Every structure is written in structure tokens, then in C-alpha cells.
Amino acid sequence: MDIPSQVGKRALVTGGTGGIGFETVVALAGAGAEVVVAGRGRAKVDQAVAAVREAVGTAKVEGLVLDLASLASIDGAASAVLAGGQPLDLLINNAGVMAVPERRETADGFELTFGTNHLGHFALTGRLLPALLAAPAARVVTVSAKVARNKGATLEDPLSAQSYGSGMASYTKSKLANVVFTLELARRAAGTRITAVAVHPGTSNTGLQQHLPKYMQVMASVVLERFVGQSPADAARPSLYAATNSGVKAGDFVVPDGRAELRGAPHVAEMPPAATDPAVGRRLWELSEQLTHVSYSFR
């Protein structure tokens, strides 16, 4: 993907050690950005940093250990970033978990999928807000999914055991929360230099399928790679478009333009209807602040 020069910009990509996140890192580094690769384990982070340097000889890249399922880890990682004193131009909230077969909890007792995919990124974005506000024109890109459009998708009781239902039900709630968060952040950041954008990357065979049964992983690999899906590099295009295109506006939703939004060139589409009610955004924001103990100050 031909993206504008990112020389002089600093980016942080969560889940940057593999899949779509890794391809996002490579593309941004190739365009000249300084990129922080965030991942859960030191070994995988170091491997990813080495792989980026091998792919892009001029890459300015560093690693950051970050576990979005731990508020303590988020606090430590954000403190390390802020200690550098540099503005943060791009925050790509890319990491996620999907289809966990049974209800699990984060280190802080939240349901794992919602706690990682939404609450973890909510807390991280809030903790990094000073660096984002210090940038000339920061973008916060949060990766959602097509399931946010599912009929009947709701954020009712997102953390209760009774509402877990299945791994995919929780994943759907978390991905709807991603776009609700984006719209509410866009409202609250109005008047600042922060642009909040959500993306749906399309369909690709990535590490997200690791919790599916083995036979479904095999089927997903064949179907996604040969028929309806796309490569992780192509699936990174909506995130890159949202992060770098000059025409993107706060509250946009960038998705593939192909059939059923499974693949194709990135373009701006309508938000899922369930995400657009400001009252839903306020409730989710207030709940997220209460649970994470992270408050946003835009001054």
C-alpha cells in the first residue's frame, strides 16, 4: 500500500508481534515512522523487532512488553513510553483475542475478551493521552471487526458470567465496544488535535483463530487464504489508511470495499447502527473509567 511519508512521526502498535499488527508495523517503518512494537512477551517482541529490521533495513523500531489483560502491565508500559518525553503521533489499538472457548478472566477479574479488546485499549489510550495531545496531529486507530455489524449486537452486561454465552458472543460485544469507544472518544476529543478512527480489517487467517477447534482452524486457513479472505498484509490496509490518509475524519469507520467487506481496498463506510447512540457511548465510557480507574483529561 502506497502511504504518505511518516518520517518524523512516532507510532505504537499493540499486537505488533504477528498477523495484521506486524504488517502494520512493517508498513509504517517502511514509510519512515519510528515504531514501538507492543506485545505480551519479551521473546516475541524481540523476535518481531528483529524481523522488522530485516524487512526494512532503515527501520527505527523498538519493543515494548505490554499485556492488555493486566492494568498493572498497561500502567508500566505507558509510563515507559511517557518517560521518553516524545509525542505519540499514531496509536494503533490492534491487539485482540477471539473465540476463547470458556469464560476466563484478566488479572483484574474482567471477562478476558472484553477486558483485553476494549478495557485494555481504553486504559492504554487514556494513559498515553499526554503524549497524544503533545503531537501536532495524533490519530487513535482502533481495530474492530465485521461482527460489530451483527444484528442484535448489544453492550448489555458485557462483563457478567451470565452474558458470556460463547466466545464469539463476547468477541462481538468487544468489537462493538471498539467502535462505540471510537465515537465517544471523537466526541470528547473534539477541539483537540486527536482524531479517533475505527477500522474493520476484513477477513484474514491470523493468530486470532488460535482458540478455534483444530478442524475449524484448518477450514479457516483454506477458505480464508484461497477463496474469500486476504493476506495479513492486505488486511492491514484499513489500519494504515485510517492512520495516514489526509481525508480521514474523527469518527470514521474504515473497511474493505469488496463484497461483504471481506476484502478489498480501504474506504470509509457507515458505522454499525448499534454504535451510534451517544447515550450508549456515555454509559460505556463511564463503566470503563470505573473499572480501569483511568480518567481522560483533554486539557
Rank of each mutant, 00 (worst) to 15 (best):
L287T: 13
N150I: 06
R42M: 09
P278F: 14
Q290V: 00
M216I: 14
G126K: 01
A196L: 08
T24V: 09
G15N: 06
L68A: 09
G63L: 06
S70I: 04
G15M: 05
L133R: 13
T192S: 15
A80T: 15
A29D: 11
A169F: 05
V179D: 01
A145W: 03
V141Q: 10
R104Y: 01
S166V: 03
R193G: 09
G32N: 05
T276R: 14
H293S: 13
T172L: 06
L12R: 04
T195E: 10
D234P: 00
G126C: 06
G152V: 02
V280F: 11
P87N: 12
H211A: 11
A31V: 04
V36Y: 02
R283K: 14
S239K: 00
A55R: 15
R127W: 02
K175A: 03
S144R: 02
Y215F: 14
T17S: 12
G258N: 09
G85T: 06
L284R: 04
V294A: 04
R263P: 04
G85R: 08
G115I: 07
A265S: 15
V180S: 07
V100C: 04
G258R: 02
L28N: 09
A135P: 12
S231T: 15
T14Y: 03
L240E: 07
M271H: 03
L91H: 03
A236V: 12
A134T: 10
V223C: 10
G167Q: 05
A131M: 05
S160F: 09
A145R: 00
A189S: 15
Q6R: 10
A95P: 07
L224Y: 14
S170K: 03
A43N: 10
D67Y: 04
S231G: 03
E270S: 15
P238T: 13
A69V: 04
G247H: 05
V81I: 15
G109N: 09
L119N: 12
G32R: 01
F181I: 01
A148G: 04
T113N: 00
T276A: 13
A31H: 07
A138V: 06
R53N: 11
A269N: 07
A72E: 14
G207M: 04
G19A: 04
A59I: 03
F110E: 08
T206R: 10
G258L: 09
V56I: 14
P266Q: 01
A33S: 07
P87F: 12
V26R: 14
A275Y: 08
A275S: 15
S5F: 08
V254N: 08
T17G: 03
V100N: 04
